[in-house]
Design a protein around this nucleic acid. Structure first.
Length: 786
DNA sequence: GGAAGGTGATTTTTT
DNA sequence: ATCACCTTCC
């Protein structure tokens, strides 16, 4: 069978275009990935391009893996075995390879740079920012490290937007000094953060003619998937590599651009023609995925965006079922509805695959619990990534420190984990010494020990740490990754800490075991330690393989690029805008991005799409600011395409709380002529004129005993009504019979109501008469039986 | 000085 | 759930 036979005419054009720039505007479900993979195979088979001189970049490791696999399958189907396959990778991992292989000349312009640089991931970055802020005598209370982090990223990507958010109480902007110090620290420890990977790669290509030449010689064709999500640095990189042949093929869809907060610049796609005047543009407008109903509903939503090319997707698929709407009373009700629907669906259809989408990772928990209760097998993509979990990062940090002791972030991370007597004060002194002598922390430790400049106790603690790392280095020389890892987990006392710890550490122990398995696999591939650490740093949770499981939970962001016969798009009230932005006025740009996100979610569905929401969500229940109603984007879908809203029986009961008055909600002006800048002003005026919705006290308390007494109504404390008696869960050293009375040092007398597990770390649910319903007690409680 | 316990605040999306 | 910061105990 010919490579091209299953393609439509437009797709074939895109595949067979040979030299010169090519822009493929590929709407959702128009066969984008198929075009790009077939094109790679076509270039190799029909045009005789050497596989290894083709570079294809995507945004996620998952997409890269899939593309690589599909290309190789196509090649083998057409009887073409390849020794050196095309390079299919993410921008970031491509940059790492580039810098490790060709990076040497950079040491001339970037002092201290070597090709053994470390990678500073988001968590490391946050830790480093906090450490920098402390050394600048800035309290974390005055500035939020997260804000600084996004401001640094925004600034590196040429967007000053969030810089203004970083202000002290006096209104001063202190971003510049923090950034300078942060960048200096990265340089000192020869580390690159995610943004740097891109920028430094660009810098390398600009600086070194030899490298530039070599890379351009190497890659005859460059292909970029999800082009609408490229930021400036990625764009520059692409141009630098493709120049001067400009054999560059970009495939994208501005309607699916959902990463502007990461610096993705929609103008890269809207303005591609300006940069490559000779470009051939091909539009893929035939939609293969969804039923006509789903496609029309999604198109109706996205057509409200102003900042886009007119584009009309069409399909010859049948109308199919209406888009279903479901309103639950609470988040739990929503989750139960989804779970029971999924349950009956997969019971009746053995081939059913279901995607459950939500806006934020935190929202997945309710669905996990409901699915578990129903007995449905599922996999959660994302949430806290395996390689981001603290126990995993801790152990990898040991390896990093041994591989390069200058890695200050990793050093600080593990120097006192498990606790070995090196506290804040000692570390402060070590830090001062390092700064004073102009040496690294690791060198400072050695120096302090040699010259005996600290109290004896601190010195001996530091010495034992130093000995541990030295021992680790030796272990690393002589054995594989798995053995090294096991060695350090034992010798550092880390395993002991987890094993002797509380009940909630069993999960961590399992994770450590999983890490050891991963290390074993890396050994099996004869991977170097450095390569292993690179991969761990760049691997997001989303990239884990779901295997054969048919029900997948994920955020809308990680849903891009996937498709499911059945999709539940949840939490659509307020048009998906997350809690933290509720009540904020979104600038038009951000509103459009929310709409694109909604669009991405809808167009993942092949046959069945259900939109769900609830009126009262999670811990914000009862807060008038967070009463929800399904408006915004839902209103934009023509009525003929959606079912009537169905509600749970509970929901049909009268509301305990009044819905939020309609007049207090801001609707962005829909006049296309309106300048975004004026819009901001219009928004301000709106809130000046109408009374700003206030956080008035809640009249009826949530379903619970009345509040006996408490702080002023309207405050956070009053909203959560925390002075009830209630069930506490405590981890206990001893075993207590159900119903027995116990005394807690602080909470007084309580009754054991439930017991989970046995032995040390037994979880007890204890009813204390006068304890606030604020949180579970996770630490071992000292209980005595009465 | 360090460790451990306790308290209140905070939480978008990802390489 | 996790973090910063405080108190208390050693």
């Amino acid at each position: 069978m010919s490579l091209l036979s299953s393609l439509n005419e437009r797709q074939r054009e895109a595949v067979t275009h040979f030299e010169g720039p090519l822009l493929v505007v590929a709407g959702a479900g128009s066969g984008k990935t198929r075009v790009i993979t077939t094109r790679v195979a076509y270039l190799i088979i029909e045009r005789g391009i050497s596989p290894s001189s083709i570079l294809a970049v995507t945004f996620t490791n998952k997409a890269a893996d899939e593309m690589r696999e599909r290309v190789l399958r196509l090649l083998s189907e057409h009887g073409r075995a390849v020794e050196r396959p095309p390079i299919v990778s993410t921008f970031h991992s491509f940059c790492v390879r580039l810098l490790r292989q060709y990076g040497e000349p950079l040491s001339e312009v970037r002092p201290g740079f070597t090709t053994r640089f470390g990678i500073c991931d988001a968590t490391d970055q946050l830790a480093l920012i906090k450490s920098v802020m402390r050394s600048l005598d800035l309290s974390l209370k005055d500035f939020r490290a997260r804000d600084v982090q996004s401001a640094i990223s925004a600034s590196k990507n040429g967007r000053g937007r969030s810089a203004s958010r970083v202000r002290g109480k006096d209104g001063s902007t202190l971003l510049a000094p923090i950034m300078d110090a942060y960048q200096a620290r990265l340089l000192e420890m020869n580390s690159l953060d995610f943004d740097d990977l891109l920028h430094v790669a660009v810098r390398l290509l600009r600086y070194s003619p030899a490298v530039r030449h070599a890379v351009r010689e190497r890659f005859a064709h460059v292909l970029v998937d999800e082009y609408q999500d490229t930021n400036r640095a990625q764009y520059q990189l692409m141009r630098l590599i493709a120049h001067p042949r400009n054999n560059v093929c970009v495939v994208g869809d501005e309607d699916q651009s959902i990463y502007s907060w990461r610096g993705a610049d929609i103008n890269n796609i809207l303005g591609f023609r300006g940069d490559f005047p000779a470009v051939t543009t091909i539009r893929l407008e035939q939609h293969y995925r969804s039923t006509r109903t789903i496609l029309e509903a999604a198109s109706a939503v996205i057509s409200k965006n102003l900042n886009r090319h007119e584009k009309e997707l069409w399909t010859d698929r049948t109308r199919g079922e209406l888009v279903r709407l479901y309103e639950a009373r609470s988040a739990i009700g929503e989750a139960r509805f989804v779970a029971s629907s999924v349950d009956s669906l997969i019971a009746s259809d053995p081939d059913a695959r279901v995607g459950i989408f939500f806006r934020t990772n935190a929202q997945s928990r309710q669905f996990e619990e409901a699915l578990k209760a129903t007995g449905v097998d599922f996999v959660v993509l994302g949430s806290v990534g395996f390689y981001q979990r603290s126990e995993i990062k801790d152990l990898l940090a040991y390896l990093r420190v041994a591989a390069s002791p200058e890695d200050e972030v990793s050093l600080r991370r593990i120097i006192n984990v498990p606790a070995r007597g090196i506290g804040k004060i000692t570390m402060g002194r070590v830090g001062d010494h390092a700064t004073g002598e102009g040496i690294s922390l690791w060198a400072a430790i050695g120096d302090l020990i040699r010259r005996k400049l600290l109290p004896r106790r601190a010195l001996s603690a530091l010495s034992s740490f130093q000995a541990l790392i030295t021992g680790l280095k030796e272990a690393m020389q002589s054995s594989g990754i798995e053995a090294t890892l096991t060695w350090v987990a034992e010798k550092s006392g880390y395993m002991e800490m987890l094993e002797s710890g509380r009940a909630d550490d069993t999960r961590r122990l399992e994770n450590v075991r999983e890490l050891v398995v991963a290390a074993k696999e890396a050994d099996g591939r004869a991977e170097s330690l450095l390569a292993y650490l690179d991969r761990a740093a760049l691997l997001a949770a989303v990239d884990r393989d779901p295997g054969e499981v048919r029900v997948l939970l994920m955020t809308l962001h990680s849903a891009k690029g996937l498709e499911f016969p059945t999709v539940f798009l949840t939490g659509v009230e307020e048009g998906l805008i997350p809690y933290s932005r509720r009540g904020d006025v979104l600038p038009e740009e951000e509103l459009e991005e929310e709409r694109r996100l909604f669009y991405v979610g809808m167009t993942r569905a092949r046959d069945r799409l259900t939109l769900t929401w609830c009126r009262n969500r999670g811990r914000f229940q009862g807060d008038p600011q967070n009463w929800c109603d399904p408006s915004s984007f839902l209103d934009e879908i023509p009525a003929g395409l959606v079912s009537d809203i169905s509600r749970s029986r509970a929901t049909n009961k009268p509301w305990r709380l009044e819905p939020r008055p309609e007049t207090e909600r801001f609707r962005p002006p829909s006049n296309p002529a309106l300048n975004p800048k004026n819009t901001v002003q219009a928004v301000k005026d709106f809130f000046e004129q109408s009374a700003v919705p206030s956080r008035e006290p809640v009249e009826s308390a949530p379903a619970a005993p009345a509040v006996p007494s408490g702080p002023a109504a309207g405050s956070a404390a009053a909203r959560s009504s925390k002075l009830w008696g209630g069930m506490r869960r405590v981890h206990s050293e001893g075993r207590f019979a159900l119903g027995s009375r116990v005394r807690h040092r602080k909470f007084g007398v309580g009754v054991v109501r439930r017991r989970e597990g046995r032995g040390p770390g037994t979880k007890l649910s204890v009813y204390f008469k006068d304890y606030g319903l604020k949180r579970l007690i996770a630490r071992a409680a000292k209980l005595e039986e009465l």
